[in-house]
Design a protein around this nucleic acid. Structure first.
Length: 701
DNA sequence: CTAGGGTTAG
């Protein structure tokens, strides 16, 4: 069995000198210790795989243990990390030829409950015995059962093992990962024990999670005093601790002063900068690294996604593949999020097939990313398929699916899912309720929405946030209950924000209530004087109700305030390439063909009764010019381009940054009929599925 | 017993 390398080889792989300091190779690369393996339960043999794959769950049926990976464990033995059926994780489970009947095995054939019971009993009865046989602290530190953890802790205390040992403190600090970890650390100091290089990484993770910055900082002082701050792991922990909390300059200083660094040190910095939206520096760190690993690439990909620069995220991803770095599940989560933002269905599908082909398990993270991608790319059905195939669903997966259906106007199904979720024992949180309320809005279910709002407060004790009020205002206003919406705004406990007034105004626009719209807009302009959408909307309302002078007034106000209208921008994916169109943009290489196509389209839809609807063009310009501006709206360009670049009958999907204007909406409906195409347009807030002259939004958006 | 990257809503 190829366990381990000789010392020379190991040293060669471990580190090399880079600019005066040591660069340590990560454990994940090139070391046989982490080579994946599998256990053949039938004859009790264990084989190592040489392809370096690990963390591939393998059924370890005869013992009820799933092995995550096996690795060389010194001469003659093998270590394993696995997970028991109970969800109890095993670490450093020593497997040698005669020890595959360790105490855990005896509990393997029991049903779940008794399993964890007997497990805890055997722990309590023979702690010292277990200590010798199965890396006891590893067991504690991975213990996923809080109750069991408490039992262990009590047992450790009474047996006198805890008070005198840093070792057990460390394991417990890691296992708790909460405020308890910080008290355990205090306990350790009170006892006069000296924390070691393992203590600080565990402790700091807790300090980041709680969060407890002062405790973290004083730990740093202590680590310095003990001379531990130069330890690679300890220093990395502090770099990470600072990065997470947004203190990148402190992190940077630690990185610059460190004697030994590895990828981890840099990776924390990348995500630290990215978290602050400083992608320039994130990239700089990334480029500075002597070597990058999967984590570095993933951090860069998701950094770009979080910064709203999804196109660059996909570029980084292809660069990653070009350099031969294999993406893992976390990378793909980021890539999927990028696809979702861009509406890049083809690339999203590619990721899906990639993870199928590489046997990556659809985790809750991957699952929700996939569902979200499919929903946002306009294919709710494929999202549902992923959803139905997932075995373990958490709140996030459910919420993503519910929200996805709501986005598509499939409110009833979304609500059905919501009650199924409640039935399966998952407790909805505030965000889940936003999804449910959205579903009510899109399905026009006013009563149901009121009931959900109440049950959120009464049954679940969730205090409604401003977003929930936003949903309710939207729901009421959309359905013409404008007065009730206004009253709700007046009695809500917080100051209404722009979204609230915006929802009211959208309702006013649809139900043609100019007075209330003006009332809403006054508040809106106060809140967001620089936001162009507000002026445009009010101008549209004026224009639509024939008050052209007022509309012009708005235009002048915008000029005076120096507000620029956000240009409309549409994306369309053709053969895996995302094409971008900006309103009036003539830079596309095929712009001539596109405009010619538009002429043809216009001719054909005019036969169907199309008359340009210029009401929403509020600029005070000549009538013909208005038509011209209208015909160059970005979604019209994008659809015309899609019509000439795809075969007959193929679906078209467009992603737009603003709301669809009334004229474009009408035009798209007609195109879907005349050209027999299904056209999906995702605008700022929802989906429009145009099919045979009808839109799924029922003309309210 | 050590570490670093991740999903929804707004």
């Amino acid at each position: 069995m190829g366990i381990g390398l000789n010392d020379d080889e190991r040293r060669r792989r471990r580190g090399y000198d880079s600019g005066g300091r040591i660069w340590r190779w990560g454990r994940l690369e090139g070391e046989v210790e982490t080579t994946g393996g599998f256990w053949d339960g039938s004859n009790g043999t264990c084989r190592l795989r040489e392809d370096g794959r690990f963390r591939k769950p393998v059924n370890f049926q005869s013992f009820g243990v799933r092995v995550w990976f096996l690795y060389g464990f010194g001469p003659g033995g093998l270590g394993a990390q696995g997970i028991h059926e109970t969800g109890f994780q095993l670490g450093n489970y020593q497997l040698t030829s005669n020890s595959n009947r360790s105490p855990l095995v005896l509990t393997s054939h029991h049903p779940r409950l008794s399993l964890s019971l007997s497990l805890s009993l055997s722990l309590c009865h023979s702690i010292k015995h277990l200590m010798r046989t199965i890396g006891y602290a590893a067991l504690i530190s991975r213990c996923a059962h809080p109750r069991l953890l408490c039992q262990i802790q009590a047992q450790l205390t009474t047996s006198g093992l805890l008070p005198s040992s840093v070792f057990f403190h460390n394991a417990l600090i890691r296992a708790h990962s909460s405020a308890d970890s910080i008290s355990l650390y205090a306990h350790l100091l009170r006892r006069g024990l000296l924390p070691d290089a393992h203590t600080f990484p565990f402790l700091l993770r807790a300090c980041s999670l709680v969060p407890a910055p002062p405790q973290g900082l004083s730990a740093h002082a202590h680590a310095l005093k003990l001379g531990l701050a130069s330890d690679l792991f300890v220093n990395n922990a502090f770099i990470h601790f600072h990065s997470v909390a947004g203190r990148v300059s402190d992190a940077r200083r630690l990185l610059d002063e460190a004697a030994v660094v590895d990828e981890v040190s840099f990776n924390s910095m990348i995500s630290g900068y990215a978290r602050l939206g400083d992608l320039h520096n994130a990239r700089k760190v990334f480029d500075e690294m002597p070597a990058r690993n999967v984590v570095s690439w993933s951090a860069m990909v998701s950094g770009y996604v979080q910064g709203g620069r999804s196109k660059e995220a996909l570029e980084v991803f292809s660069q990653m593949q070009a350099e031969g770095c294999k993406p893992d599940d976390t990378t793909l989560v980021g890539v999927l999020a990028a696809c979702a933002h861009l509406g890049a269905l083809e690339q999203g599908k590619w990721v899906h097939s990639y993870l199928k082909g590489n046997n990556l398990r659809v985790s809750v993270f991957l699952g929700s990313a996939l569902i979200d991608m499919y929903a946002k790319c306009g294919d709710a059905e494929l999202g549902l398929k992923v959803f139905n195939e997932m075995r373990d669903k958490n709140l996030l997966v459910w919420t993503t699916m519910i929200k996805g259906l709501a986005m598509h106007g499939r409110g009833l199904e979304a609500l059905q899912l919501f009650s199924e979720m409640e039935g399966s024992g998952i407790v909805p949180d505030d965000i889940a309720f936003i999804g449910a309320l959205c579903a009510c809005t899109h399905a026009g279910l006013v009563d149901k929405g009121r009931k959900m709002f109440d049950s959120m407060i009464q049954q679940y004790g969730i205090k409604p946030k401003i977003e929930h009020y936003g949903c309710m205002v939207d729901l009421l206003a959309r359905n013409g209950l404008l007065d009730e919406a206004r009253k709700l705004i007046e009695r809500m406990p917080m100051k209404p924000d722009a979204l609230i007034w915006g929802a009211l105004m959208a309702g006013c626009r649809f139900h043609k209530n100019v007075e209330l719209a003006e009332y809403a807009v006054k508040h809106l302009i106060q809140l967001e004087p620089e936001c162009s959408g507000v002026y445009v909307l009010l101008g549209n309302i004026y224009a639509a109700s024939g008050r052209h002078n007022d509309a012009r007034g708005i235009r002048h106000l915008m000029k005076r305030m120096g507000v620029e209208k956000t240009p409309g921008c549409s994306l369309v994916e053709i053969k895996g390439m995302v094409h971008q169109f900006i309103v009036g943009d003539t830079s596309h290489p095929r712009i001539k063909d596109i405009l010619a196509k538009w002429e043809e389209i216009e001719g054909r839809i005019r036969i169907e009764g199309y008359v340009p609807d210029k009401k929403e063009v509020l600029l005070d310009i000549e009538e013909e010019e208005k038509e011209d501006v209208l015909s160059r709206h970005s979604e019209k360009l994008a659809i015309a381009f899609a019509l000439i670049s795809t075969g007959d009958g193929m679906g078209i999907r467009v992603v737009k940054n603003l709301r669809v204007c009334r004229d474009c909406h009408h035009v798209t409906k007609l195109i879907s009929k005349v050209y027999c195409r299904e056209i999906i347009v995702r605008d700022r807030t929802r989906f429009h599925l145009f099919k045979n002259g009808i839109c799924s939004c029922n003309d309210y958006w």
